[in-house]
């Protein structure tokens, strides 16, 4: 069982690696998701599935949102599905979901919107069978941008949900 999960997640690594190629300027909708049409055999060093590197490279630490939206696009849903599988596997670990916004909103509204985004991620994890008591949400509004700048690209990077272990 353990081996099977890791193998599945290693495949996920390929997808995740493709997805995270620098497409900074792209909007954060799912339209640009890379489809893997061909099996490519790559030797992958096994990564400890409980390591920070695994979470970062295999699970993916972020999902992104469209302007003023908390809708999870297809890519975000697949990221959350990987997390749900992983959380089912490691039932002793809890997760924190942070909701973030770009700077184009007033401070208090963005706190509410960040809360809505964090809960959208949480709700999807719960739908996938994760105990809600294992998920903490927190909104940072526009207080913790991922990148600097006042462009569509920067704003797209900053409208996000971040998943970390608690």
């Amino acid at each position: 069982m353990r081996f099977k999960l890791i193998a599945a997640l290693a495949t996920g690594l390929l997808v995740a690696a493709c997805e995270s190629t620098p497409e900074v300027a792209e909007e954060d909708d799912g339209a640009g998701a890379v489809e893997v049409t061909e099996e490519v055999v790559v030797e992958v060093d096994p990564i400890d599935p409980r390591s920070e590197r695994y979470i970062e490279e295999v699970l993916g630490k972020r999902v992104f949102f469209a302007l003023d939206s908390s809708v999870l696009n297809a890519r975000s849903q697949s990221t959350i599905r990987r997390w749900a599988d992983w959380l089912n596997e490691f039932s002793d670990v809890n997760v924190i979901v942070e909701g973030h916004c770009d700077e184009r909103g007033t401070r208090e509204y963005n706190l509410a919107l960040g809360d809505r985004r964090a809960n959208a991620v949480k709700d999807h994890l719960v739908v996938l069978g994760i105990d809600p008591n294992r998920i903490t949400t927190i909104s940072y509004g526009k207080e913790r941008p991922l990148v600097l700048g006042h462009t569509e690209a920067a704003w797209g990077q900053n409208r996000r949900g971040d998943l970390t272990l608690s």
Binding site: A112, D115, R116
Partner: peptide, 24 residues
């Protein structure tokens, strides 16, 4: 989360937002 506080004009209460399960 509770946020967006303001006092009432008589100072006896504070009005604010509560975000519960993603709804504010």
């Amino acid at each position: 989360m509770s946020f967006a506080p303001r006092f009432s004009p008589d100072g006896a209460s504070v009005i604010m937002s509560l975000a519960i399960n993603g709804n504010t």
